[in-house]
Amino acid sequence: MWHVDDGQLHALLDGELDTADPEGAGAIEVHLAECAECRARLEAQQELHARIHGLISRSGPRDVAMPPFEELAAKAAADVSRASRWAQLANPQRVHAAAWIASFVIILAGTAGLVLAVLLGRFAAEEDRGDGAAPTVRVAEPAITGARGTFTRPPRLENPEAVDRAVRRFYPPHLRDGGIGGTALVRALVDENGRVRAREVARSSGHHLLDVAALRVVDELAFTPARDGDRRVSAWIELPIVFRPR
């Protein structure tokens, strides 16, 4: 004789069993009417269900002040109009002057960035490798957002398009079609031969399956190893793997 399992009991208590389904709420209710053992278990689970609900609902703020929605909508509108004011600046007369200013700023920022990157690189090289909270260097490399270790040149992706290909391959179809996406930041150790020796999720995408897929994507990639002078060295990198749903 079959019995109702805890999962079914909790689904019943959560109002998630379908009464129309022949194996759903109907069948379970019939069984409960006949089986004293399962009825006793239902009571115990009911008590547990109520206790947990009580514990959780008692915790936290009781009276949540709700600002009017209009306030929020106005704030969102203000953000948008700020953005469009910037867009209006782009009229033909101004574009010419702005382009000159912009290129000057870019050159200036680029120089400053280069100096900063060199300084940060020195700083990072002195950091203890074992401390996970240590800052990472941002390098202007396609896709790779950070690298650590002792090197004069960070590892490079041999073929950036391979990331897209692997993402397409490993993106779980039910998440992709279900509109579920995210970005997983993967930290990987690229050895002196350019191979991925170790990797971990540094920042979750919010979905376990996407995190797992991101690790598989990184496993597929080939790198040009980092160099310290003319020597090839291993280095840690950080690589955001982006899953965009349909």
């Binding site: 805890d6 999962g7 009991l9 909790h10 547990l48 947990i52």
Partner: peptide, 10 residues
């Protein structure tokens, strides 16, 4: 989900 929630609550 029923099983996951039952276990989590227990």
């Amino acid at each position: 989900m029923g099983t996951t929630l039952a276990r989590a609550r227990q």
